[in-house]
Amino acid sequence: MEREGVKMPHPDPKKYMNPYLAGVFLGFVLIAAFYFSGRGPGASGAPKRVTAGVVAVVAPKHADHSAYYSKYVHSENGPWKSWLNFEILGVIIGGFISGALSGRLKIKVEHSPKITSRKRLFWALTGGILFEYGASMARGCTSGAALSGMAVWATGGFVTMLAIFGGAYLFAYFFRKLWI
């Protein structure tokens, strides 16, 4: 079933998988997710649930009275035992395996030589905050809304995808110094 587990030989550490081949494998992963669990993979839902879980531990009353947290805290299996949390655990393992096989394991801050690594880290943090905020609002990010939504023709998925990429192109000019 897991055809995506095929090991790609990586003689040169810089060499990535052929994008179309990777895309077809990605499609198989999506199909497998829908075939077995009836849903597509996501990502932003995991931090959302973990955060709700932490809030419920630190301030249980606050979590109970918040319409937002209580939805996750009182879900069937609670905020921790969730499909998305296990899936993201898998993403970390899978990414590590791929990185190890192709010799890309290295602790570093990747940034353009024109900016300092401190600046890169600051904007990465900011981007993470913004992305998760937007994903919580739109009920999904590039994985859960756009990609999984595309596989099942969800209108919301296509709208979210266009808004993400449209927004990124819209703002790209103002942040070009960070990258090029």
Partner: peptide
């Protein structure tokens, strides 16, 4: 939400799924 995510994309350089995969190979950003 999508527009906010777009802003997050060009400032942060990742989306949530890819950030987990990249963090797993040691990318501090």
């Amino acid at each position: 939400g999508g527009l906010i995510m777009g802003l997050g994309f060009v400032t942060g350089g990742f989306c949530p799924g890819t950030s987990f995969a990249a963090a797993s190979i040691g990318k501090m950003d």
